[in-house]
Design a protein around this nucleic acid. Structure first.
Lengths: 238, 238
DNA sequence: GTTTTCATGTAACCCGTTACATGATTCA
DNA sequence: TGAATCATGTAACGGGTTACATGAAAAC
């Protein structure tokens, strides 16, 4: 999950660990997925060893699968701050990200946080995958909703007031999420069910007059070079 | 967490592992806490070793801290089914349960599932503890809500449509939970904020005409250093 | 000049899961 | 007779967390 999140963030632009963590918090904090340094740094290390990312110390060279650059060990670096290791996505990393997104099955749909991470990076994946993930998630939540309904119908009398209230709240939560997913799916399919929702249009970019509500990813994962390079000092946002 | 749930369930009546798991699913499934046998049985074992529960094979004797009964190894048992080990709460177990409930601090309040387990067994704890847990949880959710609001205000332009939607939904979720907790707290304090909610009264048992909305646990948890002792059949709440 | 923030990392632990192994009993 | 359900358990793994260790630069 953390790996997916890292790949997703680096997809946007290279970053060092500390910043990565802040961005993670800002993006996924809403969904209770924060990640501590204790898991972040070892994960980055593993990913580097697998060739999903490369680590470049801004003043020095690039360290790939092998060890860190031997040459100048503790040079004072660009910004003057402590040695920061900036990580950049490799083509393999992009490919792996695409696989993780596309390979999300119904087992993944059960995990609230993991779904959230998938969703957060929807703009980096193709519409078909988005739809599959949303529908898998909806199926799961509907199943849970039904199970609660049955439990309420069958065993309500065995529950005390708090147990009952827990079921009621859980049911309401599930129903609410299904509604949300319905809207997302409808929007994804190009037909907005209602215009007056808070959500409704925002997913559609203003410049698109046609049916397609979103066309996020400008890069189709070309697996060769990346068309997505950017100079420092400005990220072009969607 | 699993331990707390087991103690909570056994508080009600003795049970064997398999049934325990089904009840767990029925009670906590709404909140995504299910627990597999792979964690259930080892946990029961540990709890037995610590003296929190006793295991009694319905046809045979009682196995406490030591080993299982030596005597008759594989007797055909009461119901005719396979050997079932029925677990019963010891006084130590009750005490431990009370401590786990009372000792729930703000760290615990951050864990969604753990809060759910606490809540599920509210009727087995005293009103003061219930209130503390609810308020700790509310504080946590409010904090998260504020963090999302700030993130939305400060960094909204860096987010794409999906990132934004994730924040929006997370914010709404947090707001909804705070409202829910507010109602629970109000009800707990004896003053219902509104009568027309779905929830409103249900927590109050129909036979109570007075202010106190709930009076759960009929059994006391008779500890030494506990100022909160109570005779069976009613807890003085207030 | 001390505290805060930036920055990277390791070691130990925690709490669960999946997959596997076993076997009796009931039901179709 | 074969599948489903009841019933208990172990081993290996997974994916995170907390606590610890270190140190430089910025802010106050």
């Amino acid at each position: 999950m953390l790996e997916l999140a890292i790949l997703g963030l680096l997809h946007e632009s290279p970053m060092h660990g500390y910043e990565l963590r802040k961005r993670l918090l800002a993006l996924l904090g809403a969904i209770r997925a924060a990640f501590s340094y204790g898991s972040l740094y070892p994960t980055l290390k593993r990913m580097r060893q697998r060739g999903l990312i490369v680590e470049e110390t801004p003043g020095g060279g690039v360290a790939e699968k092998g060890a860190t650059v031997k040459g100048a060990p503790e040079k004072p670096l660009l910004t003057g701050r402590r040695a920061r290791k900036v990580y950049r996505l490799t083509p393999e990393g992009k490919e792996h990200f695409a696989q993780l997104m596309a390979g999300a099955d119904s087992a993944h749909a059960a995990d609230e946080a993991l779904f959230g991470v998938h969703f957060a990076f929807f703009s980096r994946t193709d519409p078909a995958t988005r739809l599959r993930i949303l529908e898998a998630r909806r199926r799961r939540v509907e199943e849970r909703r039904e199970r609660i309904r049955e439990a309420l119908a069958r065993t309500a009398e065995r529950l005390d007031a708090y147990g009952l209230e827990l079921q009621r709240h859980g049911l309401e939560t599930a129903e609410r999420e299904v509604r949300w997913l319905n809207e997302l799916i409808a929007s994804e399919e190009g037909r907005s069910p209602r215009q007056h929702t808070d959500f409704g249009d925002p997913l559609a970019e203003p410049g698109r007059p046609d049916a397609a509500p979103i066309q996020g990813t400008p890069d189709p994962a070309p697996s060769a070079g990346d068309p997505n390079k950017q100079g420092k000092g400005g990220m072009r946002d969607g």
